[in-house]
């Protein structure tokens, strides 16, 4: 490529939005299974949902919403030239991601301590609907957890770009796309939280 590479910001964001669509559809498969099995085993899903700790879920919702706010403000900060503020906000977001995962670790550990995990002997003694509930709970939150990790890596990587000046006040589309990805991670949780922790009570 010769020197005349010009960046198409609209194109870059367009591509990112398409990618986010595919992520929604990836989780869509799990949400379809959730709705089919909820219709089939409504009582068992309520019984399963009652065993989830709404405080863990609520705390994680709060953590993710705060992190999304920080990402959004970090973009404005960078555009106004406040690079160190931007880096601080992004660092805060990555810290929130870590906090989310620690919280999730304790939540899962408690469940696993009670013998509730895929393939466990105790799970296989539960009614079929509850088995489905916990299997799909672990799959959905697990897949979401993987996305939290990927999002944190992407944001850390963007921080390196900001440090080296590749992403700056005049060229910030990479940060905006990374932010969009993080909002998606948040958005999916906004669906998971009520579906598993709230409406089944």
């Amino acid at each position: 490529m010769s020197g005349h590479v010009h960046k198409d910001y609209t194109g870059a964001k367009f591509g990112m939005w398409l990618f986010l669509f595919t992520e929604v559809l990836l989780f869509g498969g799990l949400f379809i299974l959730y709705s089919v099995y909820l219709a089939r085993y409504p009582q068992a899903f309520v019984a399963g949902g009652a065993q989830l700790n709404v405080w863990f879920g609520g705390a994680n919702t709060l953590i993710l919403l705060t992190s999304s706010l920080m990402v959004a403000t970090s973009i404005t900060a960078l555009r106004r030239g406040a690079t160190s503020l931007c880096l601080g906000l992004l660092g805060g977001t990555v810290a929130c991601a870590a906090l989310f995962l620690v919280n999730k670790f304790f939540e899962w550990s408690a469940k696993i301590g009670h013998g509730i995990y895929p393939g466990s002997a105790h799970l296989k003694e539960l009614p079929p609907g509850e088995m489905v509930f916990f299997n799909i709970y672990y799959l959905t939150t697990g897949l979401h957890g993987i996305h939290v990790v990927i999002g944190a890596i992407v944001l850390t990587w963007t921080m390196v770009f900001i440090k080296t000046g590749r992403v700056n006040a005049h060229d910030w589309v990479i940060l905006e796309n990374a932010g969009l990805y993080w909002h998606l991670v948040d958005l999916i949780w906004i669906f998971i939280f009520p579906l598993y922790y709230l409406i089944l009570h």
Binding site: L26, F27, G28, L30, P118, G119
Partner: peptide
């Protein structure tokens, strides 16, 4: 629009074989 659904489907087979999530 369609390929992600295949992605989650084969991922579920993977999960069912490896960790026994019998969806």
């Amino acid at each position: 629009l369609a390929t992600p659904v295949l992605g989650i489907t084969v991922a579920l087979i993977f999960a069912e074989r490896v960790i026994g999530t019998g969806l």
